[in-house]
Write a protein that binds this DNA or RNA. Structure first.
Lengths: 367, 367
DNA sequence: AGGGATTGAGAAAACGCTTTCTCACTATCG
DNA sequence: CGATAGTGAGAAAGCGTTTTCTCAATCCCT
């Protein structure tokens, strides 16, 4: 009496009929429940293979209350950093039999909440990667996204595992590296306005300034793409800086390319540094001095935290009364289920010196 | 009597109770069915927002027989080409309210069939991107994957839309370009053994050889990564070639970097070409001459074909008798449902000349 | 004012699977 | 040899929706 007379697909019922057993028995056999007589089990398996039966995951998910899928929300899938995180996550999850659903918010912070919610409902957990939303929004949203792992953000109230990279220290290391090479006039090509990791870099540079009063650090507006770096050549040159820090490797590569076109020698006239150490960084000309962030490992670690959270969320028997869904606060209930210490895991990037940095020129480069 | 006394989550039943209506009515309201009295509808909506009710997608999927999700299987998520396809697909699908599930086969062709099957069952359709499996396997698998879109492969029997890039012509264009610059000794750094697109390139070069008997084309084993290009420097130099074709931009970049380290001037001593025109290609030093493939558009087009296929598969009433699931051939049934012309859509890459190619040196580069 | 057409909402079946509950049957022990 | 524990498999409930079916109430027209 259904809309379509059967989906056309082979179901557990077909197998049961062919094997002459009940649905329950087929299910038992398919799930390795050994309370089934060997002879019958064999008959069921034979029927299953003959019909090429494959259990319907949606039915399974509904009955089991899990989808074996996790979601990830990224601000921009064209960014190699997020691609690497996605890859690390996906490979690690696959090892444990989970799949990954992706959602790209296109850097639109208002989309994030909706995307995250939708993705979460389809999955057993969610990874929020460098969300652009405000702290307040994030804090409000986090409880309802529960098995949640954050990358490059953290929340106070909710006990969601969080993976952070110490960008502040990283950018300081780079600045120190340049100072060590004799540079006294630096410039920083900053990142996207809503990026939390950019704020960390700015904070790091602030500390650097305090520690190095003699060094001039020129701030330049920026972004996260090649184009930003490529178009910043003039601004960089007129700043008079001999050492340039950039938001990430992409920007650095754009800048490198632009400087080359202008006939500026790197590192002879100007030193350039990136951030992240994407795979391309070792193949630029000159090769790029940058901070190495174990990006793929970040994705893998995100998965580890995720699977831990999912597993610990399954065990504890729900003591909460189920009978009173009156309060509108239902979403908060399991907020401190996996009440593990919510201390963020901090990744410390490490300085990788390559060919794009060198001793400061005696006089600044060509204006 | 369920395992856990309710999932804890708010369900349609809670809303119904609060609004004092039946489950059916809530469903009607949520789905914009206007046969509901305005006053009641308002009450339902109020209850829904008060409880922060969000329909469970799994339940919905089961009832509706669709998941609003498609899957994509790629050989290697770290390859920028596949990343770009994924991005194009994902963005286009998102426009139509679909999500993307990813599966990375890690270049293991035996994994592909399983991954594809699993992914397909969870989704409404599948994109198979440059599958490494054999033609026979692909042909056998295709019917069971039905709403299926192929990228860089095609099948004879099944009417699955297929998107192909004319790599054969592309590589010829590049070779012609080098010949036009006076090069007479060429080399080709080939791609992964199981790659169909590599076979097309080889076929193209074969035709090129026939048309240009005077030109020497040296074949070198390769792969698809930086490292391959980087490590091929010696082989390239000892081949005596002055013009080098590579499998893709990654290989070309590795080679560029390696040549630079060896003090070989590009394009002065040797000209190098890539393939694909990934975004990095315009920021190498020298900038890379390559064949531009509209990669992201490939992903978008894949989505267009997919949504067409899905939609056309919904309309035709299933005339087939549902009562006899005896034959094991059930998977083949809707093989020619969307019996549109299965002509592959061919993308023609276009030559983009940049700085890595130039006139042939009078005498071959340093040995 | 009475009868057929129309509207609106509830009851229940269906989607495909898992699992508890239950019971028939066999093996074991006193 | 009869009572009891144990084993294996079927019936049915349940997961959270949607949708058909059904029926009561309202409406309009003659």
């Amino acid at each position: 009496m259904g809309r379509r007379s059967a989906t056309g697909r082979i179901g557990i019922a077909d197998v049961a009929k062919l094997a002459g057993v009940s649905l329950a028995t087929v299910s038992r056999v398919m799930n390795g429940n050994f309370t089934v007589d060997a002879e019958i089990a064999a008959r069921v398996r034979a029927a299953a293979t003959e019909l090429r039966y494959q259990p319907n995951p949606v039915g399974r998910s509904l009955a089991l209350g899990k989808t074996d899928t996790i979601g990830i929300v990224v601000p921009d899938l064209s960014n190699p950093t997020f691609q690497a995180i996605l890859r690390g996550l996906s490979m690690a999850a696959a090892q444990d039999g989970y799949r990954v659903l992706i959602a790209d918010s296109s850097e639109v912070s208002s989309e994030e909440a909706i995307l995250a919610g939708e993705a979460r409902r389809r999955c057993d957990g969610l990874v929020l990667c460098a969300p652009r939303m405000s702290d307040a929004e994030l804090a409000e949203l986090a409880p309802s996204l529960q098995p949640l792992v954050l990358i490059n953000r953290s929340t106070e109230n909710t006990a969601s595992p969080s993976l952070m990279v110490d960008y502040a220290k990283g950018i300081q290391d780079l600045a120190d590296h340049l100072v060590g090479l004799g540079h006294t006039r630096l410039a920083f090509l900053s990142g996207p306005p809503r990026s939390a990791s950019n704020k960390l870099r700015l904070a790091g540079l602030e500390r650097f300034r305090e520690a190095n009063p003699g060094i001039d650090v020129h701030m330049l507006p920026g972004g996260s793409s090649f184009e930003v770096g490529h178009q910043a050549v003039d601004a960089v040159l007129s700043s008079g800086a001999t050492g340039v820090l950039t938001f990430n490797d992409l920007v650095a590569m754009g800048l490198l390319s632009g400087l080359h076109e202008h006939g500026v020698n790197v590192p002879g006239d100007i030193s350039v540094t990136g951030f992240d150490d994407i795979s391309f960084a070792r193949y630029t000309t000159p090769t790029l001095t940058t901070m190495t962030v174990p990006i793929t490992e970040l994705g893998e670690q995100a998965w580890q935290r995720m699977i831990e959270t999912i597993r610990s969320a399954r065990l504890p028997a729900p003591t909460a009364t189920t009978a009173a869904p009156l309060a509108a606060s239902a979403a908060v209930e399991d907020a401190d289920d996996g009440a593990r210490a919510p201390l963020p895991t901090i990744f410390h990037p490490k300085l990788t010196v390559r060919g794009s940095t060198g001793p400061a020129a005696v006089h600044p480069g060509p204006q």
